Simulated scan of single mutants.
Amino acid sequence: MDPRIREHAEIIANHSVDLQAGDNVVVDAHPVAEDLVVALHEVIGDAGANPVTTSQRTGKRAQRAYLRASDDEFETPAHELALIEETDVYIAIRASDNVTQTADVDPEISAAYQQAHRPILEERLSTRWCLTQFPAPANAQLAEMSTEGYENFVWDAVNKDWDDQRAHQQHMVEILDPADEVRIVSGDTTDVTMSVDGNPTRNDYGEHNLPGGEVFTAPVPDSVEGEVLFDMPLYHQGREITDVYLEFEGGEVVSHSAAKNEALLTEVLNTDDGARRLGELGIGMNRDIDRFTYNMLFDEKMGDTVHMAVGRAYDDTVGEGNEQNDSAVHVDMIVDMSEDSFIEVDGERVQEDGTFVFEESES
């Protein structure tokens, strides 16, 4: 086994989820990620914890068969919820043998399925959880990389000094955390403002998401005004959506379009009332992620990007007394900030063309 896989497993256990003796652990993984699952079981055994492996999250072939055979009436599966209620640590491993496996599932069926599984999502988020990536060949193919090249890319981004990364990102936390208003401008297609007043800024250095590499917070839901062109593609429900355009008034999306799969974007926005409002503003800061790979877990962390998510706001990014945007979905979309772009915080420019004001002093 590649020693980097064992290192990956140890970072998950010791850094991301703080694995303890006696913990009940769910490892949710596609079979193609078996090497990482095996390494995790070694680490879990060393710690004296109790593992069980499932493929609910990433067994897309089986999920496709189920959803295509179903109507749009779903109930929350009590047995699955019961498993998570007894879980201390939840580790989800992204990997695929076909990244478009669910492309022919009706979006309305997928949305109904997500709604029914929302209590399970809420319960998972109350555990010590981590979402990570195993470098499977299908994911390498989507990234237009060789398998070996993609393996190097993934482990360079994952197996790193997370204390150093935390210190680098803390500069941006200290700027954003006490702020009121943020403005994002990119070319003549994106100019959007939002309040983050009273909402905490979080430093993602590889705890819940591995790799980490962003700072993020929640906009005040009704404060978002302006327009955004998300000029980097995203994959959602096995389909590519490109050039997503959203126009906001009073915090809500009042107009939208996409160059490809606009109907799927419409389904996302129609999931519930909260799906038409922003739940997250994130700023990418991981310089080891230096290329776009059609994988949001990595792409949203690139240093020359910002991302915004329609839908659910994370509990720990909403200040006491502030409204939390609530939704069954959380869909991230990315703006390239490398050229003709800037971020302003309370009127002060803190990033221009992808470079932060504090990066010169760090070098």
Rank of each mutant, 00 (worst) to 15 (best):
D290K: 12
L246E: 04
M302H: 07
G212S: 08
G213P: 06
I289H: 10
N261W: 10
G212F: 05
R277M: 09
T305P: 06
D222M: 03
K301D: 11
L229M: 12
P219T: 01
A275Q: 05
L229P: 02
D299Q: 11
S223C: 08
F230Y: 04
N261M: 14
P233D: 07
D304C: 12
A218E: 03
E240W: 11
E280Q: 14
L229S: 05
T271Y: 03
G238A: 12
I241N: 01
H307M: 13
S255G: 09
L269P: 06
A218F: 10
P221K: 00
D273Y: 15
L269R: 09
T266P: 08
R277W: 04
N295M: 12
V244A: 07
E252I: 00
E252G: 01
G274Q: 06
V228F: 00
R277L: 09
V228Q: 00
P211D: 04
S223Q: 06
T305W: 00
N270H: 10
L229D: 03
L281N: 05
D222H: 13
E252V: 03
L246N: 02
R291D: 10
V254I: 07
D304K: 08
R277Y: 05
G274C: 12
V215D: 00
E247H: 07
L265N: 07
T217K: 01
G226T: 02
Y245G: 01
V306E: 02
A263V: 15
L229E: 01
E249F: 08
G213L: 05
N286P: 10
R239I: 15
V220I: 11
R291G: 07
V228M: 03
D273C: 08
I241G: 01
L246W: 02
E300H: 10
E240A: 14
L297S: 13
T242I: 06
R239W: 11
G303M: 04
F298E: 09
I241F: 03
D243C: 08
E262A: 13
T293D: 06
E267D: 15
L246D: 00
V220L: 09
V244Q: 08
Y294W: 15
Y294N: 13
L278S: 07
D290F: 13
D299Y: 15
E247C: 00
D243I: 05
M232I: 11
Y294G: 06
M232F: 12
I289L: 09
T293Y: 08
M285K: 11
L210G: 07
E225M: 03
F230A: 06
Y294M: 15
F230D: 02
V244W: 00
P221V: 00
T293A: 14
G226I: 01
V244P: 02
F248C: 04
E262P: 02
L278K: 05
R239E: 08
S223I: 01
I289R: 03
L297D: 12
E252M: 01
R277T: 05
L234C: 11
V306P: 01
D288A: 15
T266S: 15
E267G: 15
M296E: 14
V268S: 08
A259M: 14
G279T: 05
E280A: 09
L229H: 01
L278T: 04
G303S: 15
N261P: 10
V306Q: 04
R291S: 15
G279S: 12
P221T: 02
I283M: 11
F230K: 00
F248M: 00
